[in-house]
Amino acid sequence: MTTTEAWMIGGMMAVTFGIRYFLFAMADRIRLAPWLESSLKFIPPAVLTAITLPAVLLPKGDWHLSPSNPYLIAALVSLAAGILGRNLLLTIALGLAAFFAHRLLL
């Protein structure tokens, strides 16, 4: 490992751990305002959606809104599987299967 690599990994580790630990470290001193506390439940679906939607609609950085987009098909299949089946493993497995079926067949 070169010195530059060590600096890079050290820096990445410091910022990542810093972000994850900052609030935990001060947990005893922090009191969240009631409106902030009630906003917490929106965080997971909001963040995950903001990551997922662009990854599906612009898989390679460009808009790809058509049935020939395997990412879109996989997403729709897992969305349907997730809503109907309510089983996480099935949701992921069917989405992956749809993706590779699409790539092999089309």
């Binding site: 997971p44 679906p45 995950l48 959606t49 990551i51 997922t52 990854a55 599906v56 898989p59 395997p70 990412y71 996989a74 997403a75 897992s78 969305l79 997730g82 996480l88 949701t91 992921i92 989405g95 992956l96 993706f99």
Partner: peptide
Amino acid sequence: VAMPVTFIGMI
């Protein structure tokens, strides 16, 4: 593709 598919299941 594993990432969006997993995240959909998580959302």
